[in-house]
């Protein structure tokens, strides 16, 4: 069963784009239907994408829609993979969680929330996971600075040293 044809037949307009690159199929899905699509991919005979490998966020700045969430599904029965992608606006990005279909998505979605600021609605535990709870901003966004500090070498030792905080006893 061809996953792309099956998805297009089932969901019609909700399938926004299909790309293929080096044997990897990317299906861009309407964000509102992602849970249904995942459910369909998992439960349909002939597709059986039973394993969620990975969920990741992408920041397409300066494009709009700015954010992407990519779901990497894998079928142990058919031995093939599929990438579903959801595109989200830069302003208050939100998409429904797929933890109901794939429990493995739980921490991945928390990570995307933490690092990209994409909210997953109906998620059971939407907290920051990697950064401290009181952190400002979402580090993996393209407009978030890397946080580079000037490196102290012998030629600029004194200049940097002036501003370097040193711990006390």
């Amino acid at each position: 069963m061809n996953p792309v044809e099956a998805l297009q037949a089932e969901f019609g307009d909700a399938i926004q784009a299909v790309e293929e690159f080096r044997g990897e199929i990317t299906v861009t899905v309407d964000g509102a239907r992602i849970v249904d699509v995942c459910q369909y991919c998992r439960d349909t005979e002939g597709l059986q994408y039973n394993f969620l490998s990975d969920v990741t966020g992408i920041d397409y700045l300066p494009q709009e829609p700015r954010f992407g969430v990519a779901y990497h599904l894998y079928s142990m029965y058919q031995n093939r993979s599929l990438r579903l992608k959801v595109l989200l606006p830069g302003d208050e990005p939100a998409v429904s969680t797929v933890t109901g279909v794939y429990p493995a998505a739980n921490w991945f979605e928390r990570e995307i929330f933490d690092l990209f600021g994409v909210t997953f609605t109906n998620h059971p535990d939407m907290r920051r996971i990697l950064m401290p709870a009181d952190w400002d901003g979402h580090p993996l966004r393209k407009d978030y600075p890397l946080g580079y500090e000037t490196v102290q070498f012998s030629f600029n030792f004194d200049e940097v040293d002036k501003f370097k905080p040193y711990a006390k006893e």
Partner: peptide
């Protein structure tokens, strides 16, 4: 310009790399 996902079997399990 492209996106790929590669997976290998690391000692711990599936190690995947998504590269854009």
């Amino acid at each position: 310009e492209s996106e790929v996902y590669v997976r290998i079997e690391s000692p711990r399990g599936e190690l995947g790399c998504f590269l854009r």
